[in-house]
Nucleic acid binder design. Structure first.
Lengths: 325, 325
DNA sequence: ACCGATCTTGACAACGTTGTCTTCGAGGAT
DNA sequence: ATCCTCGAAGACAACGTTGTCAAGATCGGT
């Protein structure tokens, strides 16, 4: 910037004014400065700028579990869109469900003086963020609640969705329902499981360890589990898979066997219309989840100091898949 | 940091040394400083740090077309992983295939003094990056070549893959092949189309406008186009869809009609095993694409000054999908 | 011709850190 | 005892920018 000033024969400050489109600079000076900027290939140093002018780095931090997962990719895409509308940049990092890593990444983002944080929590204790929040970095949690910190949160109605879906299975007469899930350690999974038993227990099908299978991380494991359940003497007449990765494996095994078990899955998925098996999915609007959270964050950034609020977005039952041909 | 120094009764510089784990500080001073840091909730300002200590912000910029697209999400995930191994952060932005936006975003990333750029190009002219590159910000392009700038590039063998796939169709006797693509404006699409005609033309099936359909942006459009082609007097006996979004629509329509046309698709997809239609896909390793590009970038950041190189990754033919039941 | 208001420009300090240099003192070799 | 080296700590400037303030120029109104 000093070089530009010399080249244009003006002061440092005048260059700063021109570069930032501040008013009250003579047109001919503006022109000279812009010419010098072009000749010297000057680029404003955004770091120095935000260091001087307060703490705003025009950056939002987004912490998710895993970027490559379509659910989080959709969140990232929507967040990026809203962030862009505010002329800011987005830093994205994955916690990979590791609380220690989550903590480190969030600290690092704060060290970079992000203007706000969007977090899908991996851990159960986010009190370490309290200092940052008090110092003025707003945080919005999405998809899962935070632990030990009062903050804005946007959730899906996991329990209600599971209730509605399982109710439909029960109304169709199903009582032995195999339930497959990723990990009870994850809040959303617990909520979905609880929702299922909100309906199953009163219908005379109390919690049954043999029908609930935890720790299923990929479609292959889901397929094996379905095979195992169907080979038992008293096989389930229906399955409830608690995320879409599991649903894929379940469908695979049911198709392979030509089974006619009913299938309910949490999470919609893109290629559902190609699936050769009739299923009901509990769908929700991932874009909306991210949009609401990001807009909430920007309201905070713009100075909204009201009490933290929690928004719960509805889910919807949708019939998907074609009957096998 | 001044406050911490006062609190600990040491100088500013000593705090800096402790915070950065520099050697030659007395253990008792280290302890006092760390205590003060904890009491005051001190957080090192990463912006100020990188402003002073050179230009490194420990940040990599990734520019892709669309975050929510699984292909780019996979790239982002892999890049994030490698970047994390280097203790850096990743800024991600979407150009949405808009060259002007691409340019603006890249400039903005440079203004934030990223240590390097990973770019899936949207435009055809990247000469505006030359200054940055010369000033020491390395750039690696992936999936598509850059325009007007000599830089490292990692590509897929689009043309070779298309050739291999179409060769298989031709060997099976197909000559009337409907080809569906997104946009000839995109480099990868042109390469795939050229690859197809590398094989088709010598086999006596020269370029036929009626069989090549451009501008197909979503599965529904693909389905309509397939319907249209099949309703012609001389319908194609096979289809080649140039990306996976199109493949989905093609399968949908072929299933609906109970057609037995052969199908070749560029891009593998996740749920391919559930698809009730036999198809061959031209697959490739997206992780590898991103990994190679990111590692190339870090070699440049670490000072590799050799001539820019272009890496072309192979594709593979894979049989997918089940025959309709 | 004079005054105040407004516009234009620049000098200077400051943002929070770290690189460089200096100072001071202790320890070892002669 | 003297010299040299090395370790520990701090003073100070600098990174590239912008906020603040002051100075000078211009202008309209009296």
């Amino acid at each position: 910037m000093v070089d530009v000033a010399n080249r244009a024969g003006v002061s440092l400050k005048t260059v700063s004014r021109v570069v930032n489109n501040e008013p009250n600079v003579q047109p001919d000076l503006i022109e000279r400065v812009l010419a010098a900027v072009a000749e010297l290939g000057f680029r404003r140093n955004h770091l120095a700028s935000s260091l001087r002018s307060g703490q705003a780095s025009a950056t939002i931090g987004l912490l998710i579990e895993e970027i490559a997962n379509p659910f989080y990719a959709t969140i990232a895409g929507t967040a990026a869109e809203v962030v862009r509308q505010h002329d800011m940049m987005l830093i994205i990092a994955s916690s990979e469900e590791d609380p220690a890593r989550e903590r480190q990444l969030l600290r690092d983002m704060c060290a970079r003086r992000v203007d706000g944080l969007l977090v899908v929590p991996a851990g159960y204790d986010h009190s370490f963020l309290r200092t940052e929040v008090e110092l003025g970095t707003p945080v919005v949690f999405l998809d899962r609640p935070a632990g030990g910190l009062a903050a804005d949160t946007v959730l899906l109605d996991n329990r209600g969705g599971a209730r509605a879906g399982v109710r439909r299975l029960v109304e169709a007469g199903h009582r032995r329902i195999g339930i497959l899930l990723d990990s009870v350690g994850i809040h959303t999974m617990r909520e979905r499981l609880d929702g299922a038993y909100d309906v199953l227990a009163p219908a005379g099908a109390p919690y049954d360890t043999r029908l609930v299978r935890d720790g299923i991380r990929d479609p292959a494991a889901a397929a094996r589990t379905v095979a195992d359940l169907l080979d038992r003497p008293d096989p389930p007449t229906a399955f409830f898979s608690l995320n879409n990765r599991i649903t894929v494996g379940v469908i695979e095994e049911l198709c392979r066997r030509g089974s006619d078990a009913a299938l309910l899955g949490f999470d919609d998925f893109d290629l559902a219309r190609l699936v050769p098996y009739p299923l009901t999915v509990i769908a929700y609007d991932t874009h909306e989840l991210a949009r609401v959270a990001t807009e909430l964050l920007f309201r905070r950034i713009e100075g909204d100091r009201s009490l933290p609020r929690t928004v719960v977005l509805p889910t919807e039952l949708v019939a998907r898949g074609a009957p096998p041909r």
